[in-house]
Each structure stands twice: as C-alpha cells, then as structure tokens.
C-alpha cells in the first residue's frame, strides 16, 4: 500500500518547533519538535479532543501558537497558496458545486481554462462529476462530504490538510469511500496531513503516523515503526493492542485479532505466546462466535475478546482456557 517516494528522507514538509497552544490557561497542545514528511500521507491519530484539529489549524495559519513556530517547507508557496484545507463540516457558499470548487482557484489566480480542467478532474476523482451544476446546498450528506474533499483536492496545493474526511458518512458509505480515498490519496503527489480518530482509517490511509493524546505526541514515524514499537500502554491500546504484563513483569501488546484458542495437535506459530483466559460470555454475532473474558496474569486481569474459528467448539462460561497469540510486541522497552 506504499507509494513511491514515501520515505520522507528529504526535507520535511512541515516542522513544529517548540509549539505550545494555551486556551483559558490550559495547555491544549505541546509539541517540542515534530517533522511531517513531504510527499507522504501522515495521519494525525488519537482520541477526540487531543489537539489534532488544532495542529491542522496551525499548519493552515488559521491560528498562531502561543510559543514556538510552525514552519512550512520552502517552495510550498507560503500558507496562502501552499495549503489546502478540507474542513470536517462541509460548508458551501451560495451557488453551484462548480462555483464552490472554482472559488479557491479563482482566488489563487489560476487561469479560467485550467480552472475548468482541474475542477473537472477533482470532481471525477471524488465521484461528484455529475453534480457540478447542482446547488451546493442541496447535496446529501455523503455528496457534500465528497464535494468538500474535491474542493480541497482541486487546489492541487503542495500540502493538503484533511480533517476527518469520512466522519459524516454512515457505516456503509464510509467503508466504500475509504477504499476510494485510499486509492485517491496514493495517486496524488504532494503532502497530505489527515486527521482521524478511527484506527482503521488511520491504518488504511497513512504512510506515517503521529499519535496525539491530550496535546502531546506519544509516537511519530513511519506507520509500521509506530505499530511495531508502541511506546507506552495507552498508545498501544489506542492502536488496538491488548496490553498485559506477563509473569516476568514485561509489558506485552497482543495485536488485535491475534488471540486464538489452540486446537489439539496444531503446533503453535513460532514466537507465539500463551496466556490463561477465563471465559465470561459467549456471543453470537451473526455467523461469527466471539468469546469475551479475561486474560489472567500474576499482575492482574485484562478484559479482551477472542473470535472463534469455524469448527471450534464454543467454551462454557467460567471455564479457564490456555490461549495463544502470535506477533506480540514488548512495550516501552
């Protein structure tokens, strides 16, 4: 899923340097140093209220930090022409979708012919080519979200900021558009900074990842590196790990979906770890069966869930099983 030139080895597109943002005497963002790579998709990931949108607003110049600076790479053309911003709530001016998509290009003095071509291309990419002459205020929620995205992409800015581009979709629309968006972002040149609180979106769309909790960066780097070495239990849980402390006092992260109930003679995968698991409930979720319970370690108990494979015999509540998981990572080492 990686695209060419995603190494980020060159000069970064955006650098946060000693940045602090204070609101009503509360520090809501504190980023001593952070570089976002050029020509890659960086996802800002974390729980809501963690400062993700504030970071986007700082990059766009909509807000100034109370301390420090946010620098854009030279050649980005400055904040006016260098940054495009797709806001979380789609807001449109009176007029057609076309007029809304063209406005930014007009303001950036793009010649009329090129304007038409770029609007057409962005609209087709986002699947709203047939809606260009519609009154922008009559679009459905999904259409509006796509038009909102198209408006940002049409600008073709060196840096494109997207704030929760899928938030307004329903579950079905989100799944469909997530695929389209993943393809679309990979095809484009330029730097993308995308904010999401959804783990699946983050993993599907990002080349790089910044985990932001309560205004502080917990982890930053290539997606894989962040996933393989979560720095602390909280970050690991955000990334989907089930965090346990084993008998030797080592904190382990069990990857999502990795827990299995071993079947008789089937040998354990190399490097797999075993845990004691007390069954509490057995849930029928459609065709799937899930077992909810607790992993028991000398340090305590941790709630988790195991999906049964087809053919497994459902356990009985109260039963204590031996379970295994492959790909566990050590946390904070």
């Amino acid at each position: 899923m990686s695209r060419p030139g995603t190494g980020g080895a060159g000069a970064p597109a955006v650098v946060f340097d000693g940045v602090r943002v204070v609101r009503e005497r509360r520090t809501i963002l504190d980023v001593p140093r952070l570089a976002l790579p050029a020509d890659a998709v960086t996802v800002l990931f974390g729980p809501n209220g963690g400062g993700k949108t504030t970071m986007l607003r700082l990059i766009a110049g909509l807000e100034r930090p109370d301390a420090g600076v946010v620098r854009l790479a030279a050649g980005a053309g400055g904040r006016r022409d260098g940054v495009a911003y797709g806001f979380q709530e789609p807001v449109f001016l009176r007029g057609t979708v076309r007029m809304n998509l063209e406005l930014g290009l007009t303001l950036r003095k793009v010649p009329p012919m090129e304007r038409v071509a770029r609007v057409r291309a962005a609209a087709d990419e986002c699947g709203i080519g047939h809606l260009l002459e519609r009154d922008a205020r009559t679009l459905s929620v999904g259409e509006a979200q796509r038009a909102n995205l198209a408006r940002a992409l049409a600008l073709g800015a060196p840096i494109t900021l997207l704030d929760e581009p899928l938030a307004a979709f329903d579950r079905v629309g989100r799944v469909a558009f997530l695929d389209e968006l993943a393809v679309l972002l990979r095809r484009r040149a330029g730097t993308v900074v995308l904010v999401t609180h959804d783990r699946e979106e983050a993993l599907r769309l990002g080349d790089h990842m910044v985990v932001l909790v309560a205004g502080r960066v917990r982890a930053a780097g290539p997606l894989r590196a962040v996933l393989e070495r979560p720095p602390d239990p909280e970050t690991a849980e955000l990334l989907g790990y089930t965090v346990v402390v084993d008998g030797r006092g080592v904190t382990l992260g069990i990857p999502p979906g990795a827990l299995r109930i071993p079947r008789g003679a089937v040998p354990l995968a190399p490097g797999a770890r075993c845990f004691r698991f007390r069954v509490e409930r057995v849930l029928e979720v459609g065709l799937e069966t899930r077992v909810r319970g607790r992993i028991l370690t000398p340090a305590g108990e941790v709630a988790t869930e195991i999906a049964l494979l087809a053919g497994d015999v459902p356990p009985v509540p109260g039963e204590v099983l031996e379970v295994s998981a492959a790909g566990c990572v050590a946390i904070g080492s």
């Binding site: 022409d81 709530e89 807001v91």
Partner: peptide
C-alpha cells in the same frame, strides 16, 4: 456558517476579498 471565514481564508481570500465574499 461559523466556519465560513476559515474556509474562505484557506481558499486564499484575504481582508477585503474576504469581506466582499
């Protein structure tokens, strides 16, 4: 809409142009 001025700014409108829009 509350976000409209921010939107216009990121689209490239400044001062008088923003006021006009």
């Amino acid at each position: 809409p509350e976000r409209l001025p921010d939107l216009l700014r990121t689209l490239g409108a400044r001062r008088w142009r923003m006021l006009w829009l």
